[in-house]
């Protein structure tokens, strides 16, 4: 067998042979990408330009051009509001998650007893976070900071706030723990990056008289910049894909609703995707470690 195989392939150039073997290994994925991502994506876009009705005799399409998009952007009173709310909530949550996970990772990188217990605690939410569970916990008021969200002083404070600030602050108060629960994987990645920083750099800095505070800003933080970018992007994506996300829920409801329909839901999906892509692009430009071109 192997002899015949090697004589057969001896005719091919080695680089071509290698390329063909490589394509062989990713072949399943390529087929899957076409069948389960590319074609459905194109179909969804096509649906978004039509009014779609699913009947017993199949799917009926009535072209409406960009009508569904216009409806989502200019007529629907809920969608734009939900979209803005999503953007604000993401903008509020991502820095909290980044700072919290970096802080916890810095703590867990120190040497003390029972470190493993704390690692287990801070990773636990990753294992149990599912839409229905979060929904139940939020409904019972278990995801707000204990005792804070219900206090009259806070309610008084909320009324004083202008409208555009009230929603984000309220979201912070009622879902603060939930936001922190999205930090599990991030803590682990930060921890792994921290452990890769060469200890001798810190020693050299200490000998030169740098305080631990200075060492953090001058050594630790710059070493974590790539990790921070990756974690920020991962965080935005996991928040945006979460099944309890209000925009995701709205689009899902509209898919099956009589007044909505598949065409309209598809249009909203593409607008949402565009907003997510813009958020990610903005994040990339904001956090990208400066290329050292002037060196």
């Amino acid at each position: 067998m192997s002899v015949s195989a090697s004589t057969r392939s001896r005719g091919l150039r080695p680089s071509l042979r290698e390329a063909l073997s490589g394509y062989g290994f990713i072949l399943l994925w390529l087929i899957g990408f076409a069948l389960f991502t590319l074609v459905p994506l194109a179909q969804t876009f096509y649906y978004s330009l039509n009014t779609v009705t699913v009947g017993v005799d199949g799917i009926k399409l009535v072209p409406v051009e960009w009508g569904n998009y216009a409806r989502a952007l200019f007529t629907d009173p809920n969608f734009i509001e939900l979209l803005i709310g999503y953007a604000i909530e993401t903008a509020v949550s991502v820095p909290i998650i980044l700072i919290f996970s970096m802080l916890i990772a810095l703590f867990l990188n120190l040497h003390f007893k029972f470190k493993g217990v704390f690692r287990t605690i801070f990773f636990l939410p990753v294992v149990i976070t599912s839409g229905p569970v979060i929904q139940e916990l939020t409904a019972q008021g278990a995801t707000s900071i204990p005792g804070l969200a219900q206090s009259p002083a806070v309610a008084e404070f909320l009324i004083q706030l202008p409208g555009y600030l009230r929603n984000p602050v309220q979201y912070l108060l009622t879902s603060f723990i939930l936001i922190l629960w999205f930090s599990g994987v991030q803590i682990l990645i930060y921890l792994a990056s921290l452990q890769k920083i060469d200890a001798s750099i810190y020693e050299a800095a200490a000998i030169d008289g740098a305080s631990p505070w200075e060492a953090f800003w001058k050594i630790t933080l710059p070493s974590l910049s790539t990790t921070t970018l990756v974690i920020a992007i991962y965080t935005v994506i996991s928040l945006s894909h979460f099944s309890e996300n209000k925009v995701v829920k709205y689009i899902y409801r509209q898919t099956y609703a009589v007044e909505g329909g598949i065409g309209y839901a598809s249009a909203m999906s593409f607008i949402y995707f565009l907003v997510l892509a813009l958020l990610l692009a903005g994040l990339y430009l904001f956090l990208n470690p400066r290329p050292q071109s002037n060196a």
């Binding site: 680089s15 490589g22 991502t37 459905p40 894909h241 949402y272 997510l276």
Partner: peptide
């Protein structure tokens, strides 16, 4: 393990599958 043309594109597409929200592909499926 293998070098082949278009590898960068494949990586970009893999990343794309991670970014594209489920609702953009789920209805036709």
């Amino acid at each position: 393990r293998y070098r082949f043309p278009g590898k960068t594109l494949v990586f970009a597409l893999i990343l794309a599958t991670f970014i594209i929200p489920a609702q953009n592909t789920v209805i036709p499926q």
